[in-house]
C-alpha cells in the first residue's frame, strides 16, 4: 500500500475543489437566469404565468435538494436519457438556486415603497418603464447583500451532488478517506476548504448589508 503524506491529501482535495467551484458558478449563474424568469412570471399580469412561477418556487423550496437530485438523476434516465451525474447535478442545482433567488429578489422588489410606484404612475410611466427606471435600480441595491449571502448556500449545496456520484470536494474526501484511512484529517481539511470558499462570501454579504444600512440611516 502506498502511503499518503498530508500534502498528498490536501493536493488531491484542492484538485477536486475546482469542480466544487465550477459547479457553484454554473448553479449560481444559471440559477440567476432562472430566478429572473421566475420573478418576471411571478410579478406579471398573466395569472397562469404567476401560478406556474409560484408552483415552481414552492416545489423547489418545499422539498429536500437531495430528493431533487435523485429525481433528476433517475427521472431523466427513466425517459431514456442517459444522464451523467454532472448534468443531473447542474440541472437540479440551477433550478433549486433559481427558486430561492426568485423569492429573495421578489422580497427586494416588494420592499420598494408603494409611493414609488404611485409617483411614477402619476408621471405616466408604464409598468416596464417604472420597473426599469424606478423600482429595479433601487431593488438591485438592496438585493446585493442577500444574493451574495445565498451564494454561500449554493457552495454548500454542491456537497450533496457527491451522493449521486459527481466527483467534487466531498466525493473526493470520501474517496481519499477510503484510500488513506485518515477520515479525521481528510474531512477536517475538506471543512477548512469549504470554509475558505464560503467565509469570504458570508463576510462580504454582512459588510455590504451594514454599508447599506448606514446609507439608509442618512436618508
Amino acid at each position: 500500500m502506498t502511503t499518503f503524506t498530508t500534502w498528498d491529501i490536501v493536493r488531491n482535495l484542492l484538485l477536486a475543489t475546482q469542480w466544487t467551484i465550477l459547479l457553484s458558478l454554473v448553479a449560481f449563474v444559471g440559477g440567476g437566469v432562472a430566478a429572473l424568469l421566475a420573478l418576471l412570471a411571478r410579478t406579471s399580469q398573466n395569472r397562469a404565468a404567476r401560478r406556474l412561477a409560484v408552483f415552481y418556487i414552492e416545489l423547489f423550496q418545499g422539498t429536500p435538494l437531495l430528493m431533487q437530485l435523485f429525481l433528476f438523476f433517475f427521472g431523466l434516465s427513466l425517459v431514456g436519457v442517459n444522464v451523467p451525474p454532472w448534468l443531473a447535478a447542474a440541472l437540479a442545482l440551477i433550478l433549486w438556486t433559481g427558486a430561492f433567488l426568485a423569492e429573495i429578489w421578489r422580497g427586494c422588489v416588494e420592499a420598494i415603497p408603494r409611493g414609488q410606484w404611485e409617483a411614477s404612475s402619476s408621471l405616466a410611466m408604464s409598468y416596464f418603464e417604472q420597473m426599469r427606471h424606478v423600482v429595479l435600480p433601487q431593488a438591485l441595491r438592496i438585493a446585493v447583500p442577500p444574493t451574495v449571502g445565498f451564494s454561500v448556500q449554493v457552495v454548500k449545496a454542491t456537497a450533496l451532488t457527491s451522493i449521486i456520484g459527481f466527483v467534487e470536494l466531498s466525493k473526493a474526501s470520501t474517496m481519499i478517506t477510503n484510500a488513506t484511512f485518515q477520515p479525521f484529517v481528510v474531512y477536517g481539511f475538506a471543512a477548512l476548504i469549504y470554509f475558505a470558499l464560503c467565509w469570504p462570501l458570508s463576510k462580504s454579504s454582512q459588510l455590504l448589508e451594514r454599508k447599506l444600512n448606514v446609507a439608509h440611516r442618512n436618508h
Partner: peptide
C-alpha cells in the same frame, strides 16, 4: 457559528461519524 455556517452539513456529519472515532 462561523465554522458551522460556512461548511456543508454533509461534511460536518462525516467528520463526526467517521472522523471523531479516530481520536
Amino acid at each position: 457559528v462561523e465554522l458551522i455556517r460556512n461548511t456543508p452539513f454533509l461534511i460536518q456529519l462525516f467528520f463526526i461519524f467517521f472522523g471523531l472515532p479516530s481520536i
